[in-house]
Amino acid sequence: TFVEFNGKKVEYPTPEAAEKAAKKLAKKLNLKVTKKNGNYKLE
């Protein structure tokens, strides 16, 4: 499962880990999380 932000793509071993990381990053970077095709994107 990938988390995409600032043009970077980071892969996580589980969807749970990706979701957790996405939410944490979104909060830190003041972005919102969108889920697309099972992957997460911060914008």
Rank of each mutant, 00 (worst) to 15 (best):
F2S: 07
G38L: 04
K27S: 10
K27I: 11
N6L: 15
K20F: 10
K9P: 03
K20R: 13
G7L: 02
K35I: 15
A17S: 09
F5N: 02
K41C: 15
L31Q: 04
A22V: 08
F2D: 02
E11R: 15
A26C: 04
T1E: 02
F2A: 05
K28V: 12
K32W: 05
L25Y: 05
A22G: 01
E43M: 09
G38Y: 03
K9C: 15
N39E: 08
L42K: 02
K9Q: 09
V10F: 14
T34I: 13
V33R: 00
Y40Q: 04
P15H: 08
Y12H: 03
L25G: 01
V10D: 04
L42G: 02
K9H: 08
L31Y: 05
E16N: 08
P15G: 07
F2Y: 13
G38A: 04
E4P: 00
N37I: 02
A18R: 00
K28L: 14
K24G: 09
A22K: 01
K23R: 13
Y40R: 03
E11T: 13
Y40I: 12
E16H: 10
F5T: 03
V3T: 01
T34V: 14
A21M: 08
K32M: 11
K36A: 13
K24F: 14
K8H: 13
K24E: 14
K27T: 08
A17M: 12
K41H: 15
K23L: 14
K8W: 15
E16L: 09
P13F: 06
A26Y: 00
A21G: 05
K27Y: 09
N30S: 08
A17P: 01
T14C: 06
L25T: 03
A17I: 10
K41T: 15
E11P: 10
F5W: 12
G38R: 05
A17C: 12
E16K: 12
Y40E: 03
G7M: 04
Y12A: 01
K36P: 06
K8E: 09
E11H: 15
P15F: 05
K8M: 13
A22M: 04
A22T: 04
E16Y: 08
A18L: 02
K41W: 15
E11G: 11
A18W: 00
K9I: 13
E43P: 01
E43H: 08
L42R: 01
Y12N: 00
V10K: 12
K23Y: 15
A18F: 01
K41L: 15
K32T: 13
A26N: 01
L31D: 02
A17G: 07
K28W: 13
N39T: 10
K27C: 14
L29M: 10
F5Q: 02
V10Q: 09
K23Q: 12
L25S: 01
L42W: 02
N37Y: 06
K41E: 13
V3G: 00
N6H: 14
K23W: 12
V33N: 01
N6V: 06
V33P: 01
V10W: 15
K27W: 07
N39P: 00
A26W: 01
N37F: 07
K35N: 08
L31H: 03
T1R: 09
F5S: 02
A21S: 06
K9V: 12
F2H: 06
K27P: 01
K27E: 12
E19I: 07
K36F: 14
K36R: 11
K23M: 14
K23T: 12
P15R: 12
A26S: 07
K41N: 11
T34Q: 08
K41D: 06
E16M: 10
N39V: 14
Y40D: 03
G38D: 06
K32P: 04
A22L: 03
T14L: 02
P15D: 11
K41Y: 15
L42A: 02
T14N: 10
G7D: 06
T34L: 09
N30L: 06
E4G: 01
L31K: 02
K32L: 11
K28D: 10
N30W: 05
V10A: 06
A17Y: 06
V33G: 01
F2M: 07
K27G: 08
T34S: 08
T34N: 08
L42V: 15
V10C: 14
K36C: 14
K36S: 14
E16S: 09
L31G: 02
K28A: 12
E19S: 08
N39H: 13
Y40F: 13
T14V: 02
K8P: 01
E19W: 14
A22E: 00
A18N: 00
G38V: 02
E43R: 05
L42N: 02
K8L: 12
F2I: 11
T1C: 15
Y40G: 02
L29E: 04
K27H: 10
G7A: 03
L29V: 03
A17F: 05
F2E: 04
P13C: 07
A18T: 02
E4N: 02
F5G: 01
E11K: 15
E43D: 08
N30C: 15
E43T: 10
E11Y: 15
E11V: 14
A18G: 04
G7I: 00
V10E: 07
K27D: 11
A22H: 01
P13I: 05
K8V: 13
A26P: 00
N6D: 10
E11W: 15
N39C: 14
N30H: 14
G7N: 08
K24D: 13
L31T: 04
K23N: 13
F5M: 07
N6S: 07
T14A: 03
K9D: 03
F5Y: 13
T34F: 09
A21P: 00
A22S: 04
K20W: 09
E43G: 06
K9T: 10
K9S: 11
P15A: 13
E19P: 00
F2W: 13
Y12S: 00
K35A: 07
K24Y: 15
T1H: 13
P13K: 10
G38T: 04
T14D: 07
V33Y: 07
K8D: 06
L25A: 05
E4K: 01
K28F: 11
Y40W: 12
V3Y: 02
L42H: 03
L25N: 01
T14W: 03
K28P: 01
E4Y: 09
T1A: 11
N37G: 11
G38W: 01
